[in-house]
Amino acid sequence: MNPQPQILCGVVVSAGKMMRAVKVRTAKQTYNGFLKKHFLTHNSYLVSDPNDSLRTGDVVKITNEKRVSRHIKHVVTEIVAPWGPAIEERPKVLSTEERYEKWRIRKEAKNLRKAARLNAEVQGVNDGASVEAGEVREKVAATAR
């Protein structure tokens, strides 16, 4: 039984500086034992935004899913309150199923490229790998449509 991923709500503080990634700041409270008081602090997360649909100032919900890269472990699930252009004018935020399907297509393309390269190495042909890689790209483009 897999635990439910944690859903956090935060504000986009940096967008448009990285490809397909934004920085989201979430609020939290920490307790100071000496002063016996709670203080408001924050955590910042690098979040995957595959369609570049977020703008600085948006309030979003994020969740931790499969690791996207070395520093990006979270993904945008929903825009709660947009800042700037309306949500309808922006690219759509991908659902979990759409993200998984996109990942699966990329993974299949990678496996086809690896198989083509291994076949070329076994046959001893270096130029054949680039020809087969072009065929793989055509197959991936056809499956993505």
Rank of each mutant, 00 (worst) to 15 (best):
S14A: 09
A15G: 04
K17T: 14
R20P: 00
V22G: 00
V22E: 03
K23C: 10
V24G: 00
A27F: 04
Q29M: 14
T30S: 14
T30C: 11
N32R: 05
H38R: 08
F39L: 06
L40Y: 08
T41F: 05
H42K: 03
N43W: 05
S44G: 07
S44Q: 14
S44E: 15
Y45R: 02
S48T: 07
S48I: 06
S48V: 06
P50M: 11
N51E: 11
N51D: 04
D52Y: 09
L54D: 03
L54C: 08
R55A: 05
D58T: 03
V59P: 03
V60D: 00
I62E: 01
N64V: 09
E65R: 07
K66T: 14
K66Y: 10
R67F: 03
R67W: 03
S69Q: 04
R70C: 10
K73A: 11
K73P: 05
K73G: 07
I79Q: 04
V80F: 04
V80S: 00
A86G: 12
A86S: 14
I87T: 12
E88Y: 08
P91K: 00
P91M: 01
V93F: 00
S95F: 07
S95D: 08
T96W: 09
E97R: 10
E97D: 14
Y100Q: 14
Y100S: 13
K102T: 11
R104A: 15
I105Y: 06
R106L: 15
K107E: 12
K107R: 13
A109V: 06
L112N: 01
R113W: 06
A115K: 08
L118H: 08
N119L: 15
N119I: 11
